[in-house]
């Protein structure tokens, strides 16, 4: 059983590829996914502190208002929008739409631009720098 499993091919590791927008976005999807899993854990922390009462909620507020907290939140906002938009791209691929090299390159560029715009709009609003 184990012997059989060891013969199975692994995914080609990153160094093998020449960086292209499609491959960069593909690995970014995974990296943002891992980072968002961490964010989900912090969201869980928020609910936990909220449930424990006002005294514990102060601890959460200290974290959320700190510089580390704000940098992390900004990172999660960027990751969230990127993962969401690129995820929509993936869902279309599942139906066989937009798989050609040219189209996938352009949808990739659109995902990057929209991520940038949405992150600035929502992110700055979050940090109180806008509106």
């Amino acid at each position: 059983m184990i012997k059989k499993e060891n013969n199975r091919p692994l995914s080609p590791h990153l160094q093998i590829y020449k960086p292209q927008i499609t491959s960069i976005l593909s690995i970014s999807h995974r990296i943002s996914g891992i980072f968002l899993s961490l964010g989900l854990f912090v969201m869980f922390g928020f609910i936990a502190f909220l449930a424990l009462g006002k005294n514990y909620y102060v601890i959460w507020q200290c974290f959320a208002n700190s510089l580390i907290g704000e940098v992390l939140f900004m990172g999660w906002i960027i990751s969230l929008f990127f993962h969401m938009l690129n995820g929509i791209r993936h869902l279309f691929w599942d139906y066989g739409i937009g798989l050609s090299l040219n189209v996938s390159k352009w949808t990739g560029i659109i995902v990057c631009i929209l991520t940038f715009v949405l992150s600035i709009l929502i992110g700055f609003n979050f940090l109180g720098l806008l509106i």
């Binding site: 060891n6 692994l10 995914s11 590791h13 995974r30 996914g33 891992i34 899993s37």
Partner: peptide
Amino acid sequence: GLKVIIEDYIS
């Protein structure tokens, strides 16, 4: 998602 990533990169 994490399961797929682990399956791909941990031999």
